[in-house]
Design a protein around this nucleic acid. Structure first.
Length: 305
DNA sequence: CCGCGTCAAGTTCAT
DNA sequence: ATGAACTTGACGCGG
C-alpha cells in the first residue's frame, strides 16, 4: 500500500518543473531546461525516499514541448545517462511512478489533427518512462475524452484509436473516470480493451454512475482490471474544497474523512494517489496518520514544512 | 527588480 | 462565429 502525490514537491525549494514560451523554444534552451528538470526530478525522488513516499506522478512538463514539433531534440539520447540513473533510483527504492497527460490530450477526438497530437503526446509519455528503464507497472493515466454529442460513438472512437497505438503505449495505458465519463462507462471500456481502470473517488462522488453502488463496490470492480503486469491497483482520492465550485480539489486533505474512507476499504493492496493543492504535505499527513507508531524523527527536509 | 499581460494544446457552453 | 471557463502558476517583456 502506498500513498502518493502529483508532480510538485512543496517540501523542497524549486520543487517543480521549469518551462518556456514557444517562441523561445530553441534547441539549446530546451536542452538546458531538460537538464534542470531532470535534476529536479532527482531531487524529488530523493525527497520522496527520505520521507517514505513511494508513489509519485512525474510531471508531463519534464520535457518542455515534449510532443510538439518545435522540440526536435533527441533528449532520450542526449540525457540517456541521467535518465537511466533516475530509473535505477526509482527501481532500487521501490517507488512507483506514473504520468498523466492533461485535458489537451484527447484520444477519442474526431478531428484527425487533434488525434494525431494526442497520439504523439502519448508516445512522448511512453518514451519518457521507457527511457527510465522501468516496467509497465509505471503507468500513463488518461481520461476517455470528449462527448461530441454522442458518448457511445465517442467511446467507440476511443477504442478504435486505442488499438492503433503502439504496443509500448498500450501496455502502459490506464483509463480514469471523470466529469464526462462515469466509472461504469470507464469500466466497460477497460474490460473491452483489457486495460486497467483507475477509480477516481472524488470525481465519482461529483458524477456518480447510475445506480446506488457505493465507492467500495467500484474499488472492487476496478481491482479486477489490474493484471500482474500492471502492478497493484491504483485509485485517485481527493475532497471538495469548501466554498469553491463542486469538483474543485481540496487545498489539503482533511484527515478524519480520509481515515473514515481508508478503514472501510477492502484488505487488498491498493495505491492511493492524492490530488490536492498541497501535494506532498497531504501525502505525508496521511502516511504518518496510518503508521501504528508515529516516528519521532523524519527525513531531513530541504525546507521546513 | 517589479508588475502585469500572456501562455501549445481541446471541449463545452454562453453569447 | 467568437470568446470564456476549466485551473494556476510561471514566463518574460517593459518600465
Amino acid at each position: 500500500m502506498a500513498i502518493g502525490y502529483a508532480c510538485i514537491a512543496m517540501g523542497i525549494n524549486d520543487g517543480g518543473m521549469r518551462g518556456c514560451m514557444l517562441k523561445n523554444a530553441a534547441s539549446t534552451r530546451l536542452d538546458q531546461l531538460i537538464a534542470v528538470n531532470l535534476a529536479t526530478l532527482n531531487r524529488q525522488l530523493d525527497y520522496n525516499i527520505r520521507n517514505g513516499i513511494s508513489l509519485f506522478r512525474i510531471s508531463s512538463d519534464i520535457i518542455p514541448f515534449g510532443s510538439h514539433p518545435v522540440n526536435r531534440n533527441l533528449w532520450w539520447e542526449d540525457h540517456a545517462d541521467s535518465l537511466q540513473m533516475l530509473g535505477d533510483k526509482i527501481k532500487s527504492s521501490g517507488m512507483r511512478v506514473s504520468m498523466h497527460p492533461g485535458q489537451y490530450t484527447v484520444l477519442n477526438a474526431s478531428d484527425p489533427k487533434v488525434l494525431k497530437n494526442a497520439v504523439a503526446d502519448l508516445e512522448y509519455h511512453a518514451r519518457f518512462l521507457d527511457a527510465l528503464g522501468i516496467n509497465t507497472q509505471h503507468k500513463i493515466i488518461l481520461h476517455l475524452g470528449g462527448i461530441y454529442g454522442d458518448w457511445q460513438r465517442s467511446i467507440a472512437r476511443f477504442e478504435e484509436n486505442f488499438q492503433r497505438l503502439s504496443p509500448g503505449v498500450r501496455r502502459r495505458m490506464v483509463i480514469e473516470n471523470d466529469e464526462k465519463y462515469d466509472i461504469a462507462k470507464v469500466m466497460e471500456v477497460a474490460r473491452e480493451l483489457k486495460i486497467p481502470a483507475v477509480f477516481d473517488v472524488f470525481h465519482h462522488q461529483c458524477h456518480p454512475a447510475p445506480g446506488d453502488r457505493d465507492v467500495y463496490y467500484w474499488v472492487e470492480q476496478c481491482r479486477n482490471t489490474w493484471q500482474n503486469d500492471d502492478g497493484v491497483q491504483k485509485i485517485h482520492y481527493s475532497q471538495q474544497e469548501p466554498g469553491l465550485r463542486s469538483g474543485a480539489h481540496a487545498r489539503s486533505i482533511k484527515l478524519q474523512p480520509f481515515l473514515d474512507f481508508y478503514y472501510q476499504l477492502p484488505e487488498n493492496p491498493l495505491d492511493i494517489m492524492l490530488e490536492v493543492k498541497d501535494k506532498d504535505i497531504s501525502a505525508l499527513k496521511c502516511i504518518l496518520a496510518l503508521q501504528p507508531d508515529p516516528p519521532r524523527r523524519l527525513g531531513e527536509p530541504e525546507k521546513s514544512i
